[in-house]
Amino acid sequence: MSVESGHRDAPRELLELYDEALPVVYGYFTRRCGDRATAEDLTSDTFLAAMDAARKPAPPPMTVPWLIGVARHKLADHYRRRHARGSVALGAQPPAADPPAPRATAQGPNVADAVLAQLPEHHRTVLALRYLDDCTVGECAELIGRTVHATETLLVRARRAFRSHYPSPEGGPS
């Protein structure tokens, strides 16, 4: 807060938060995109949007959780643009028999991250929104621009894909 005017200096707050927030926001995207260039672009877009918001007359609080919220919207916008261009073929996966229930992640979060990185972008996105960001299916549907029913179907396929890539206790995919 500026002592002279009594008003917050949100752009300065964002600048002071940058070093702490950058790895968190970038990490958010790398776990969800699997593509370094896309993660870098979306991280940049997030901070540009944050600076635009910081310059408004009544800026939001400049915090890491608020920046992750901005990042979530940037990821959803990215996903919508790709879907609108037809570059995400949602019906391309052949139907598969239900795999066994997911195992506990006793092998650690790095295994789960590695498995997510192997999945197609639309699967990574919907799984991340649902299970990492704790969005409801309805919220996921809204963020990715699909109906609730289509999102439920996508989640079923994404979970199957995740399970099929998750290593068995013997070390290979299940």
Rank of each mutant, 00 (worst) to 15 (best):
V156E: 06
A76G: 15
H149F: 12
V115W: 00
S2Q: 13
M1H: 13
C33N: 00
L15A: 14
A97C: 03
A104Q: 09
V115H: 04
A10Y: 14
Q118K: 12
P60R: 08
R146Y: 01
V148I: 09
S168G: 15
F29L: 06
P95D: 10
F47H: 08
V3G: 04
R31K: 01
A71P: 01
G145S: 05
V148S: 03
M1R: 13
H78L: 04
R163K: 07
E13I: 01
H7Q: 13
D134W: 02
D41I: 11
S87I: 14
V126L: 04
I144Q: 00
P94K: 13
L116K: 03
R124T: 04
R31E: 06
E13C: 02
L132K: 05
N110G: 05
R32K: 10
A10G: 12
P102G: 07
V137T: 15
L132N: 07
L48Y: 11
L22G: 02
L48N: 13
R31I: 06
R85W: 07
D98L: 13
A101Q: 09
Y166S: 03
A150F: 01
D77K: 11
P65T: 05
T43P: 04
L127M: 05
D77F: 02
E170T: 15
L67R: 04
S2G: 06
L42G: 03
R85K: 12
L129W: 08
A141D: 08
C135N: 02
V3C: 04
P60Q: 09
V137A: 05
L75W: 01
P95F: 13
R146S: 11
A37Y: 12
S168Q: 05
E16T: 11
S168A: 15
D98C: 11
A101C: 09
H149Y: 10
P99H: 05
C140P: 00
R103C: 00
R36E: 15
A37M: 09
R55V: 10
R160F: 08
T147R: 04
P99Q: 05
S87D: 14
Y28G: 00
A158I: 02
R55I: 08
P57Y: 00
L14Y: 03
E20K: 15
A10V: 08
R146Q: 11
A106S: 10
P65E: 10
V88H: 01
H165A: 10
H7P: 03
M62L: 02
H122N: 02
R36G: 02
Y18Q: 11
P100L: 13
A96L: 11
R32Q: 05
P59G: 08
L90M: 10
R85H: 08
A49D: 10
G171Q: 01
E139G: 05
R130V: 00
R160T: 14
A112H: 01
A10N: 11
A106T: 12
L116M: 13
Y166K: 02
D52G: 09
H7C: 05
R8E: 15
V137N: 02
A141T: 06
H7F: 14
Q118H: 07
Y79F: 14
T125Y: 01
H73S: 12
H165T: 01
R8L: 15
Y26N: 08
L14A: 01
R72F: 00
A89G: 04
W66Y: 10
R157W: 09
L129P: 00
K74V: 04
D133F: 03
R31W: 00
E20N: 14
A114E: 09
G145A: 03
V137I: 12
